[in-house]
Design a protein around this nucleic acid. Sequence first.
DNA 1: GATATTATGACAACATGTTGCTATAAATAG
DNA 2: CTATTTATAGCAACATGTTGTCATAATATC
Lengths: 159, 159
Amino acid sequence: MELANRLFFRLYQCANMLHKTGSRAVEAEGLTTQQWAVLGALSRDEAHAGMGIGELAKYLMVSRQNLAGLVSRMERDGHISVASDTRDRRSRIVTMTLSGRHVWQVLAQPKIRAYYEEILTDFSINDTAHALHYLLKILENMKRLDSEQLNGQDEDQAD
Amino acid sequence: MELANRLFFRLYQCANMLHKTGSRAVEAEGLTTQQWAVLGALSRDEAHAGMGIGELAKYLMVSRQNLAGLVSRMERDGHISVASDTRDRRSRIVTMTLSGRHVWQVLAQPKIRAYYEEILTDFSINDTAHALHYLLKILENMKRLDSEQLNGQDEDQAD
DNA sequence: GATATTATGACAACATGTTGCTATAAATAG
DNA sequence: CTATTTATAGCAACATGTTGTCATAATATC
């Protein structure tokens, strides 16, 4: 229990520090870490035609309402644009603007790379892969619990 | 770079899921994961006389302004109390109330333990220790970068 | 074709995170 | 003892996170 407590406490602190130091790294580009996650998602080949709000929220694992705020601010700043989906009038499609693509690929990428190198300076490829492996396992278990919590069921109340 | 990207992306997602699913686990107690971190800090032997706002913020690695909000809500809910520091009139001291101690020790602890077991169900002690090790290293490097960023210096501009 | 169900995003309320700036208190330097 | 510097917390603005509810649109069922 003590070990688990420390693990999750440090996870909480790492995330806050990622937000604080990572956002500082790209402050000049007018970005935050969460916004670079959005740009990263939109820059993938499979997203070249844009992504729906719900689809993007699911990919990032944040609520649709939270993503709407993120998207609104990034649209305000000219990084992305949002348009109605012609095939489904409920949906809106998010795409990267030319300006956003420049900011992302030319300005921010080198700083993000430098940031990663600064944090992982004493990590081998193996270390990074192992750390990622553990986070993936924790994330999978959290997703499963998330689903169980929403479905009103738990191991304790199998029915 | 790709590996690092995935590592930090998952770190970001894990933290959000920790907040979401962990807060649900103690929702009935009127707590959030951040609040259980506060109660956890205050329940340590070395904090039996209470902690200053600044000291607690440093321990949790959040800003003093953010902690003030957390503390204010927890005081409102009766979990803690806040008093002026008789030795330093700038400071305020946070202590756990009897009610807060009951909520923490009797009501919340079993649910937190169950939550940890749910998430770490397929983790050995070794796995947990390794995952913690990596997070600690990442956190140390982030703290070092945080300090360098504030001191206006970086490896790139040694002087 | 009508009805019921599900999907999608917006609105609102609340919680949590950072930063810049300010007022007051304590510590330090001379 | 006085002046300066540093420490401490509060205020305000902004960003980001969740949840509940609602209106509209699409899908499924009969």
